[in-house]
Amino acid sequence: MQAVPEKPTTEELIACPQCDALYRVPSVPDGARLRCSRCHALLLAPRAGAVEAIVSLASGALALMVASIAFPFLHLGVAGLSAEASVIDTIRSYAVVSGLMAPLSVLLAALIVVLPAMRLGGLIYALGPLVAGRDPPRFATPVFRLAMNLRPWAMTEVFMIGVAVALVKIAALATVSFGPSFWTFIAVVLLVGAKDTMVCEKSLWRVLTRP
């Protein structure tokens, strides 16, 4: 008689995060997309070369972001006077008005710069060593989980739409033009968008925890 294993193997099972439906998934080839048959949520969408692409896109986005936060993204000119605003000026704008508004400056700093940068840095930290053929670093698990959880709170692209709206709002009153960091921020948004299409969280967890 054969010994029955104490627990059934859960290695091949996957639960839909949206509706809890249980699936047996031995393996999914790169490029294929596995959807939940009940709620149509994307379960697995592994991409060939995803880790390399994610690390390089995230590095590019992070470098551009750090380089551009202190430079102006909008210039304003009216009647011989001029002014300009950088991301740092924008973040400080609430705090300089009154102490009551200071928390809003902290929130803005978090949503526009700190959290997006932490997300990118976290991905580079956790996945970077894999590109070089090494094992994941010591804190790869909590860092990668944090990077994934931060997704709804990284609002760089929302901020860029805000820049466009602000431009139109005062275009009638003054001459407004884009500064250098407007274009680098557009590049950041595009790179982050390209990176996000490569991120399949469940597949990456499989790669990160491969024995």
Partner: peptide, 25 residues
Amino acid sequence: IGRWSMIDVFVVAILSALVHLGAVA
């Protein structure tokens, strides 16, 4: 879609950072 509502808060921050022309505006 919820996060896109933040646009307005960003717009106000951008405009107050940009428009500080002393007595003019």
